[in-house]
Design a binder for these strands. Structure first.
Length: 959
RNA sequence: GGACAAUUAGCUCAGUUGGUUUAGAGCGCUGCCUUCACACGGCAGAGGUCACAAGUUCAAAUCUUGUAUUGUCCACCA
């Protein structure tokens, strides 16, 4: 058993006395000693570790463990005293229940979890509230689409109640999937506090927010031009529209004067809207048309009289005929013109997009048919002047993919001017900080427009507007009747709208149709825009309008992590609603994470088939690997590309993967194996006895470790996630494994065991926020008596141990090692074959002689200030000296000469440029002394290299 | 049209206030090594006039302006 290198499988059953034998940990069984007489010696739990890190079982094990131990819950849940301490809270940007999570979500939630885990380890009272969004129009559209596919039915076949029931079913299914995905990712959310934007708690917040705004007169109802989806029969937001370039025509026709004295030529891309014209506009300074201003025209087909108006905003004299037909009810610019000139707004469309009775003979026609019929009519009556081809942009609905019609309809609006102003101030005065800072501009620009927000949607899925219309609004006694009935009700507010309707808003209780005798109350059919409930998210999830403990302890939240495309839609509105409802901002910081694109710079989407499913990646590479790569991708850039490739699994399923995730998996495996190797040498719980670290390499690794702790802290404070990942990666791989472990592996003493344990222990802490599973697992194997990584204290940098001099000295030593290895490489000398080396240097290398010999496979190593160059040796310039490697029999003079020549050339050209720089008077006069010194030193080094290489070259000839 | 970005090795990207960077990392590539933690590994190496042009400066991948290409968001095109 002695000398067997594998870690010994020691478990509870055979734990006992241990000893070290040639560096291996060995159990000593002394059966004749009674158990209670055995002295309490350090107990080892050495588990047999696989040569490869196997993420699957380990991940599920720790998910279960953390959950059982309630580690994701805030400290104040178990210990009310913790309420007083500093808090760190985050609310999740609630994913839409339209579908499963994609890689963008994985990135977003990884970042949140990193921040949560880091702050939890800092000892703060930490809460992350998870949840999902009902995503009104998107979800309803998905369910309707499926309904049509599977059952060939429309929502009207089902009715409102049944459709909503179906959507709830869909929601349950996808909410469960989303939750499970988030859990598998390792998200340490407080799952008991999961919310849904349509659940009773959020619904209550919506009712209160709406009621308050309504009472303040900030919510109003009005006829406005909206983007109308003729397929879904609903208004859609500007941002739910995309534009497509289509080939159309530009028709020019005669607009006849009412007195028959002539016509104005007018051009249009949408001739069917002629039927809704209420004016023709010309530029006030247009000599061609000045004389027509104020005259009356006749609308073709319907013979309505309309005026010729002058408008310098709408009309561009250079474009088309220089005259514009004005259709206020069906075009945004014309609508604005209509408002300026007080023109009638004539609606010519039905909800389904067909022409209504205002269109006269064309009534009932729709879309292209209506257009063709009108054009034909114009042609027949001799009014058509010409037809040109014309490319134009057509707005289409994101959801139904059908053409959007600007449409005049009754909608609910929120007055934005004052609310927006206040929300802008929060960012302008630095209360809310964006990272990266440039995104603040995005926010301010959008709010600066102060457009009223259309908050109603003609959908069935969502928060139904808590307004009841009084049907008998013509009754003159209505006002007093309402007043009388609701006299004692502070939860009711009502008023008469601009169109004469009486509107009653109820705070909590739904009103009955026959609530007031003789009157009929009908609830508004519309639901609220999804973003209305999302805007309340930070405080609705914590129970507002109730005065909850949660709000007390965790509001405002610490940071919002989200994507840049919803800065205006969501971030801005949360600030507005939080200021309005809570009287404070909802979060101190907004971190905008990059958008993930595929290798060709395209967004990932179902239709392109380039999406990567996080679950596939977790399955193949592990959650830690996924998280590590997500973290590495988080730079200040606004996008991050991920080359995607197809892969066919054993079960025949085709999935998208990316080689990038190998970095994360390999890194985990590297750490795993370092730990596996060290598992035999772990002697204590990671505590460090600094006094035992006397060697150069010990001091060096301690210095590096503490530097890394400091660097990571700075990176995390500044949301520099990719930097964080890179720092810990290189420390583990290069410093700890490639260098320190390689130095120590031949002979691990108790002291170095202690330092190695300490380093590894600290690495587990530092890496935990990114890779929670493997760190927790390794900790349980190596340090079974310590507290779990998730909860224990984040390491503090010990500045006293950071030593730049030692780090420099160590680099010089490694330059020697690398010089020898380089010669080995050049001559293909097998690693097993020992060679000799001689260093001519004034430096005292006594304390690292063995280290150098070990790492570069030397049979002998001499050093000294006056040593001669051995015959037949290769020479390499090292810091402060030269290194010679005798290679009798294999030395290739040509090869050496070529290399030396190249080296000389390089050093001399560098030296020349440095000399030039240093001889520049202005440089010497202006540059800081440190820079000049640096350049002088560089010059000396280069000259030294050139000089020594020249000597070596010369010597080659005389061997 | 406006705003915001990007352009650095074959690919994906770092490079924080201009000077220890004639430029780093990972993958890929070449050669050697299955050495008792790890081949998801080790060692060595090749590979870049930092998109282009002008300017500021003693000094520019880094700052300014312009050009080209690409992307995202916003607005809009009778």
């Amino acid at each position: 058993m002695f000398g067997e290198r594998t870690a010994l499988p020691v478990n509870d059953a055979i734990s006992g006395f241990f000893d070290f034998y040639q560096g291996y940990c060995v159990p000593i069984f002394k059966d004749n000693i009674k158990k209670n007489e055995q002295k309490p010696v350090q107990t080892f739990y050495i588990t047999r570790m696989e040569t490869r890190y196997n993420h699957k079982e380990i991940e599920s094990k720790w998910l279960k463990n953390w959950d059982e131990q309630k580690n994701f819950k805030p400290a104040s849940d178990a210990n009310p005293a913790a309420k007083g301490q500093e808090h760190f809270s985050v609310v999740i940007p609630p994913p839409n229940v339209t579908g499963a999570l994609h890689l963008g979500h994985a990135l977003n939630n990884t970042i949140q979890d990193i921040l949560i885990r880091y702050n939890r380890k800092l000892g703060k009272n930490t809460l992350w509230i998870p949840g999902t969004d009902h995503a009104g129009i998107a979800t309803q559209a998905v369910v309707e689409k499926r309904l049509l596919q599977d059952e060939k039915k429309t929502r009207h076949d089902l009715g409102r109640e049944e459709l909503v029931k179906r959507i709830w079913k869909w929601k349950d299914e996808y909410e469960a999937r989303i939750t499970s995905q988030l859990k598998l990712l390792g998200s340490s959310c407080d799952w008991d506090r999961q919310r849904f934007t349509l659940d009773p708690i959020c619904a209550k917040a919506v009712r209160y927010a709406f009621f308050n705004l309504f009472k303040k007169g900030l919510i109003y109802r009005g006829k406005r031009l909206v983007n109308w989806d003729t397929h879904l029969h609903t208004a859609v937001a500007d941002d739910e529209i995309y534009h497509e370039t289509v080939k159309g025509h530009f028709w020019t026709f005669k607009y006849p004067l009412a007195d028959g004295s002539g016509y104005i030529p007018v051009a249009t891309t949408r001739p069917e809207t002629i039927l809704g014209d209420t004016a023709v506009a010309v530029h006030p300074e247009d000599e061609r048309y000045k004389k027509f201003i104020g005259k009356t025209l006749l609308v073709p087909f319907v013979n309505r009289e309309i005026p010729v108006i002058a408008d310098a905003i709408l009309v561009d004299m250079e474009f088309g005929t220089g005259s514009v037909k004005v259709t206020p009810a069906h075009d945004p610019n014309d609508y604005a013109t209509g408002l300026r000139h007080n023109l009638p707004m004539l609606n010519i469309l039905n909800e389904d997009g067909s022409l209504n009775e205002n269109a006269g003979e064309f009534k009932g026609l729709k879309g292209e048919k209506a257009r063709a019929a009108v054009v034909e009519g114009l042609e027949k009556s001799g009014l058509l002047l010409k037809v040109e081809d014309h490319e134009m942009q057509v707005g289409k609905s994101d959801r139904s993919k059908t053409i959007i019609e600007p449409y005049l309809s009754d909608q609910w609006f929120l007055k934005m001017d004052k609310l927006a102003e206040r929300a802008m101030q929060a960012v302008e005065n630095g209360e809310v900080k964006f990272t990266p800072a440039r995104y603040a501009k995005n926010y301010l620009n959008w709010l600066g427009e102060k457009r009223d927000w259309c908050i109603s949607r003609q959908l069935w899925w969502g928060h139904q507007i808590p307004i009841w219309h009084v049907e008998n609004s013509q009754l003159s006694t209505l006002n007093s009747q309402l007043k009388k009935h609701f006299a004692t009700r502070s939860d009711i507010h009502f008023y008469q709208a601009e169109n004469g309707d009486w509107l009653v808003c109820s705070l909590e209780k739904d009103l009955q149709e026959n609530e007031i005798e003789g009157l009929k109350l009908v609830r508004d059919h519309d639901v609220l825009d999804t973003w209305f409930s999302s805007a309340l998210w930070p405080h609705s999830t914590m129970g507002w309008p109730e005065q909850t403990d949660l709000l007390d302890t965790f509001y405002p939240t610490s940071v919002l992590v989200t994507a840049r495309d919803i800065i205006s839609l969501w971030v801005a509105r949360m600030v507005i609603f939080s200021q309005e409802n809570m009287g404070k901002i909802p979060f101190d910081n907004v971190y905008i994470n990059p958008t993930i694109l595929d290798g060709l710079g395209r967004r990932m989407s179902k239709s392109l088939g380039n999406g990567v499913d996080p679950l596939d990646i977790i399955e193949k590479y592990g959650a830690d690997a996924l998280r590590f790569v997500m973290c590495s991708m988080c730079t200040e850039n606004q996008e991050a590309r991920l080359p995607v490739k197809k892969e066919i699994l054993e079960d025949g399923r085709e999935i998208n993967v990316s080689e990038k995730f190998e970095i994360g998996r390999n890194f985990g495996n590297k750490l795993w194996n370092a730990a596996r190797f060290l598992s035999s040498y772990i002697v204590e719980s990671g505590e460090l006895r600094v006094e035992s670290c006397a060697n150069l390499e010990d001091k060096w690794v301690l210095s590096r470790l503490n530097t890394v702790i400091r660097q990571i802290q700075i990176a995390l404070q500044n949301y520099r996630f990719s930097e964080y990942a890179a720092i810990i990666y290189h420390f583990v791989w290069d410093d700890l494994c490639s260098r320190y472990l390689e130095i120590k592996k031949g002979d691990i003493s108790k002291e170095s065991g202690s330092l190695l344990s300490h380093s590894l222990y600290t690495v587990l802490d530092l890496l935990h926020p990114i890779m929670p599973f493997i760190t927790e697992e390794l900790n349980s194997i190596l340090f079974p008596n310590s507290q779990r990584v998730i909860l224990r204290q984040w390491p503090k940098a010990n500045e006293d141990l950071i030593n730049a001099e030692i780090e420099k000295q160590f680099e010089d030593v490694f330059a020697i090692v690398e010089a020898v290895r380089s010669v080995r490489g050049r001559y293909s000398i097998a690693p097993a074959q020992k060679i000799a080396a001689v260093a001519r240097t004034p430096a005292n290398l006594e304390n690292c002689k063995n280290m150098i010999a070990d790492l570069s496979g030397l049979s002998s190593f001499e050093f000294g200030g006056n040593l001669n160059k051995p015959a037949f040796s290769a020479s390499v310039v090292i810091p402060d000296g030269e290194l010679f490697i005798p290679l009798e029999g294999i030395l290739d003079r040509e090869k050496e000469a070529a290399r030396l020549k190249k080296e000389i050339e390089k050093a001399e050209s560098f030296a020349t440029s440095l000399e030039k720089k240093l001889s520049n008077e202005n440089f010497v006069k202006n540059a800081p002394a440190a820079v000049i010194d640096g350049e002088r030193q560089k010059l000396a080094t280069q000259k030294d290299i050139a000089e020594k290489s020249k000597v070596a070259l010369k010597e080659l000839g005389i061997i």
